Amino acid sequence: MQTLFQDFRMPSNLRFGVGALATLPEEVKQWGATKIGLVSDRGLEKAGLVGRVVELLGSLSIPIVTFTEIAGEPTFRLVEQAVNHFKREQCDLVIGIGGGSALDVAKTTASLLDKSDLDPYLRRNEKIEIRKIPCILLPTTSGTGSEVTMNAIFGDEEQELKRGIVSPVLLPDLAIIDPELTLSCPPRVTASSGIDAFTHAIESYISVRATPLTKIYAEKAMKQFPHHITKAVHHGANLEARTGMCWVSTLAGVTLANAGVGAVHALAYPLGGKFHIEHGIANALLMPYVFQVIGTTCIQEMVDVAAFLQLGDYHQKPSEALNAVVDYFYQLLKQLDLPSSLAQLEVDEQSLPVLANQASKIDRLLNNTPYYLNERKILQIYQKAFRGEL
């Protein structure tokens, strides 16, 4: 029987605003934790942000154990290390601060801390049904939306691809979005994560599972995007632009969590698994090439997107909207100093058939795309992306 309903999920509490980080101690206090597990990455530790959070929580006199072994894209093996580390320390609350990698590790770790055997969840795709350990997430980038989604993406080193864990328990108890935390985000990360957020918005807008409610969030995210992305990348100290991109990320993350994404992400995952290309970079680069193909089946939505991006009114000439949107994506890569071809990322052309084969098996995402992409068509997209030719 076909499902005729769809849930709409968000974190239990989402706190947004400049200076919101200062409220963290009072929130932690409410949980009655006896030992905190803090997940972050080496870069933020070196930059002093981890120390700042530890100092902020110092008034609570609760021991804090840190895990900052994240460097680049996380793997399932890294999650195991984090879980085992916090188990030994008997942590009963997990805080994640950082980009999508740190947040994915934090919320997955919190969900697995009470599990005696991790293999079913990390290697056999068993769904995590219950999370007993409280989890608080603080993003320092505007893009992944991990703080508001039910997804966590990790590299599978054995299969050389990326796989996702999906469960409602991955939604945190509290997400604190403080734009000040994003001020130190480097230009390249700001650009790639920003376009990643836009990818969430546009893919969820056209997705098979889209609803009127999810489209409201996606539309608002896409309308905000062109006003703030360039300033946030090239003028990183601009708090207004940073705040705007935080809204883009949050709104797009909520619609991603409920309507899902599609082909752009499906083609990006093998690039991350085999060539270790950052997720945001892969999505940003692939978006024009993928939409040039799949956009032909959702012309009316492309008319909408063109209007959201202030590219013009194409209601009288809908067939031209797709070209305008695709060209905008492509030119944006140049404006934000991002690569526009796979060759620039030193992807081996001989590996393209392997990537196409891997991507063609990611049914969860391809089936959410309003265009049937078989392996041959996927290979053609990779080939165009390799040459950088639309």
Results as ranks from 00 to 15, higher is better:
4 L>W: 13
19 G>P: 10
20 A>F: 06
27 E>V: 11
31 W>T: 12
33 A>W: 00
40 S>G: 00
42 R>I: 05
48 G>H: 05
48 G>K: 12
49 L>H: 08
53 V>H: 07
57 L>D: 11
59 S>P: 12
68 T>M: 07
88 R>L: 05
89 E>N: 11
92 D>V: 00
93 L>C: 12
96 G>W: 07
98 G>P: 01
98 G>E: 01
101 S>Y: 00
101 S>A: 07
106 A>Q: 14
107 K>W: 07
121 Y>H: 12
122 L>S: 10
129 E>Y: 09
131 R>M: 04
132 K>H: 14
133 I>D: 05
156 D>S: 06
158 E>P: 09
164 G>A: 10
167 S>C: 04
174 L>N: 04
177 I>A: 10
182 T>I: 04
186 P>V: 06
189 V>W: 01
192 S>F: 11
195 I>D: 02
207 S>E: 12
212 P>F: 04
217 Y>D: 10
222 M>E: 08
224 Q>N: 14
225 F>C: 03
228 H>A: 05
230 T>K: 13
237 A>Y: 14
239 L>D: 12
240 E>P: 00
246 C>L: 08
248 V>E: 02
249 S>Y: 10
254 V>L: 15
265 H>L: 03
274 K>C: 00
283 N>Y: 03
292 Q>N: 13
295 G>T: 06
300 Q>R: 15
308 F>D: 03
315 H>T: 15
317 K>T: 14
320 E>S: 15
322 L>F: 01
323 N>H: 15
327 D>G: 01
344 Q>Y: 02
350 Q>T: 13
350 Q>W: 09
355 L>V: 05
357 N>C: 05
358 Q>G: 05
361 K>E: 11
363 D>I: 10
370 P>S: 13
372 Y>I: 14
372 Y>P: 07
374 N>M: 07
376 R>V: 15
376 R>Y: 13
379 L>S: 05
381 I>K: 11
381 I>Y: 08
